[in-house]
């Protein structure tokens, strides 16, 4: 019985980490799905969102919901600007150039914040006082519930937006064939800007939830998180919105159960190993469909 309770507790630990990965992976996959660009700076947008919400709360004394809205707005703006300044001029260049630029943006943001706020971590206020839920001996914290809820809501909203609305249809059109979309009267620039705004705005929500679970903000916080979320997105099938969600939870559970039953040191190796296996067996990811490359 003890073993069963222990197992359930570890599953919940995994789901909690996974829900954060899922939230971050949604932003990754959203941008990739539409623009076919791996925005490696996404993890650092989370870091920027964390700093914005931190200063909104501690500097301006705002409540958390208002701080979150400001962080979403700030990150959306940052995302749109980054796209306009760094990615748009390279839209017709080889994909590798854009990828390298994304890495450069990531390093630029990290080092800029390192200069501005130093490497010493800043404490994040205890802002979400959502009650935890007890099921027998098992406790699920309020932050976990809230993160799972938020990622589920974001996923459904995104899916509906992309599939059902006019803007969503425009996004899919641009993703399929930008030139044809232009001929049909779709503004490619506006559509891509909107995609970046939504994807980056999501990273701010992820930032607030992440910092509520791990109450500390520092310039490098986004790099490993971004990488794990990227793996989650690839695992689920990059570009596919429900896939990001599933991938996030799978990665979280693998990590947690490896640490609990195999070895703490092997957790990362296991995660990256599974990525390799998935890429070998089903390169398009769990939810991915194999589509022939256009020639």
């Amino acid at each position: 019985m003890d073993q069963v309770i222990m197992f359930l507790k570890q599953v919940i630990n995994g789901v909690q980490v996974g829900s954060i990965y899922a939230l971050v992976a949604l932003g990754y996959t959203m941008v990739y799905g539409i623009v076919k660009l791996l925005n490696f700076a996404h993890g650092d947008f989370i870091m920027v969102g964390a700093y914005i919400s931190l200063f909104a709360m501690t500097g301006a004394g705002m409540p958390i919901w208002l701080a979150a809205i400001i962080a979403v707005a700030g990150c959306a703006l940052l995302g749109v600007l980054t796209e306009k300044i760094a990615y748009k001029p390279l839209r017709n260049s080889p994909k590798l150039s854009v990828l390298i630029t994304a890495i450069a943006v990531s390093l630029l943001l990290e080092n800029l914040f390192l200069l501005l706020f130093s490497s010493s971590p800043k404490p994040y206020p205890n802002a979400i006082n959502f009650p935890s839920i007890d099921v027998g001996p098992i406790q699920v914290s309020g932050v976990t519930l809230m993160t799972i809820l938020l990622s589920a809501v974001s996923m459904i909203a995104l899916q509906l937006f992309v599939k059902k609305t006019r803007m969503g249809r425009a996004m899919r059109a641009v993703s399929e064939d930008a030139q044809a979309a232009t001929l049909m009267g779709v503004s490619v620039n506006k559509t891509i800007s909107l995609t970046f705004a939504i994807g980056s705005g999501l990273s701010a929500i992820a930032a607030v939830m992440y910092c509520s679970a791990y109450p500390m903000v520092e310039p490098y916080m986004g790099s490993m998180l971004g990488l794990k979320a990227f793996i989650a997105a690839v695992l689920g099938g990059i570009g596919i919105i429900p896939g990001a969600m599933l991938g996030g939870f799978v990665i979280g559970l693998i990590e947690s159960l490896t640490k609990a039953y195999i070895s703490s040191q092997l957790a990362d190796a296991m995660v990256f190993g599974i990525l390799i296996v998935v890429l070998l067996v089903k390169p398009a990811g769990i939810f991915g469909k194999n589509v022939g490359e256009k020639v």
Partner: peptide, 11 residues
């Protein structure tokens, strides 16, 4: 680079 230690702590 770990930020989550709940698994080890639960154990």
């Amino acid at each position: 680079d770990d930020n989550d230690f709940k698994t080890q702590l639960t154990k």
